[in-house]
Design a protein around this nucleic acid. Sequence first.
DNA 1: CAACACAATGTAAACGTTAACATTGGAACA
DNA 2: TGTTCCAATGTTAACGTTTACATTGTGTTG
Lengths: 335, 335
Amino acid sequence: MTNIKKVSELAGVSTATVSRTLKSPDQVSAATREKVLEAVKAAGYRPNWLASSVKSGRSNTIVVLVPNLVNPFFMRIIGGIEQAAQEKGFSVLLGDTQGSPEREHEYASMVLTNRADGLIQLEHSFPFSAADADLAGDLPMVSVCERIHSEKKYPVIELDNYAASRALAHHLLGYGHKHFAAIVGQVSSQIYRERLAGIRSVLQEEQIPFEQNQITGGAYTIEAGIAGATHLLSQSVRPTAIFCFNDDIAIGAVHAIKKAGLRVPEDISVVGFDNIKVSAFIDPPLTTVDQPAYDMGRRAVEVLVSQIRGEPLARSKEVLPFQLIERESSGPAPV
Amino acid sequence: MTNIKKVSELAGVSTATVSRTLKSPDQVSAATREKVLEAVKAAGYRPNWLASSVKSGRSNTIVVLVPNLVNPFFMRIIGGIEQAAQEKGFSVLLGDTQGSPEREHEYASMVLTNRADGLIQLEHSFPFSAADADLAGDLPMVSVCERIHSEKKYPVIELDNYAASRALAHHLLGYGHKHFAAIVGQVSSQIYRERLAGIRSVLQEEQIPFEQNQITGGAYTIEAGIAGATHLLSQSVRPTAIFCFNDDIAIGAVHAIKKAGLRVPEDISVVGFDNIKVSAFIDPPLTTVDQPAYDMGRRAVEVLVSQIRGEPLARSKEVLPFQLIERESSGPAPV
DNA sequence: CAACACAATGTAAACGTTAACATTGGAACA
DNA sequence: TGTTCCAATGTTAACGTTTACATTGTGTTG
């Protein structure tokens, strides 16, 4: 191992001078600087990051807790996180939790052991185990999309899900639809409640019924979309428009509807959420709500880093703008 | 900061005893152990990971270099990496390079500065800058899918691309196709050469011509698939079967073909590579080659970790099995 | 009962770096 | 020429842990 001492001997200076040459070059004279840099090159020296971190007490690392890696929407968020983190000199530890609380705890505890400085949570659960809950007092943590279910308020970067689903509902009402259904993702989440409330508020204004048996689902997957659509098609009253709570569900729903011999949107309109890449290129292209996933990731890092630096946070909730993307999976209600 | 010293004072023992209680509990007496653990709990002590790592010189961290995060195939590999890493006690630093050499260097140099112990490369470039090339002598590094272009041979986990494209070619020949085209991904890569060679070898056996003007492409994206298919459709002789070098390209190609008023597979058969999730649910479901992405990731970690541990590696190249998935995007050639 | 072994614990040095403080020497100025 | 100041460098203690070595005490054995 080539360490700073070896370099200092090679250059005939003290270790402090070597350290200074690399960290704050203007504190050493030009002559010494050159001498040291030459020795650094000759020895092939690279400062040991672990050692400097243990001194500073900062690892300049953030952990991202994500339920799974195949969801392209999450990956776009993580792309934004990664980019912003790099710009700010942080690196990103990937925590694929697969929804398991044990894994969540394990990753979250990295920030208790100085392995990371902060934590971005893409789920809504409080990621610390009961044993660590008290230690986690005011640890830097930010959540994206979903508010973290905890006593203490952690900052959250989210979409206006209420307004977004109202926009979708208005869009479909404009096409004359009267029979709605929804295939929701994970139940018992903030998103679930807000989106459903948005839809309900619009339909209520038009006095269109929207009962529990018009709501199905349980996961944000293509398979759940297939199962949900299949279930809805078997109902006595077939819906003419289906809200899907993400694009994967919508892709599954479209697949199942077409497989059942019906057409989208002629027989049934389908709308999604997220605007993942592939949604624009399936048949028919999906009407959906664009979430600024990349920016959400970026913003999360900015908020987290200022939390790490101990700066007071302006507000504990940031709502980013959405955009309704009208494509061909939605159209006039059948007569 | 609650450190080991505070705990040792609280328990009335030395710091060494505290350390031993936590690392090798059988070396301390039951009475002391209990006393110490109580103090640990009372103080809310968690050992500082940075400090132990600087002692051991190992960070138990690996860096994964990935060109982009939206490609679901890469994400499945990373899922496998993440899983295997966790089982082996390693954590995963995400290095989204966006194809930029500077970023590659930056991430790769983490392993030179003890920020990480090893490196998994999902691209084929040698990720170290010219300045660091000599230092990178025998650093633990493994590549997945693509051989790293370097003098030293690094282990590679890959698919038998030659055999896989032969299988696809035979599949299409069995349907009576005579006019082929290919939309390739990144040119000048190992994958590009091997797959093309596989296709060529089969077509040559049947004395079917396959010229350069039947080959197009340049990126592994949906957009490249659209552009490629559009280009191919404008040729004087329209192909009846198109090899796409990944499923994203195939999705784009199918989109463009349908948009041009043609049908898949009745007019043109389209086959892909990777078997990403959505491929089974688009219209028509995609015939493709399943790559065991998850297992490739897992295997990469196993090889990398044994490299980190200094164990000699059995072989520098591992070829994992593929599987031809026949779906509905390929069919009989039009008459 | 002496000699020894061994289990349990303490002491202190190390890991590689950084930074507070100390020292040096030369320039500027009266 | 003596004082002051400051830039440049060195010395050394820290960061929080682990561990080699030293010490203690207890039990075993001849």
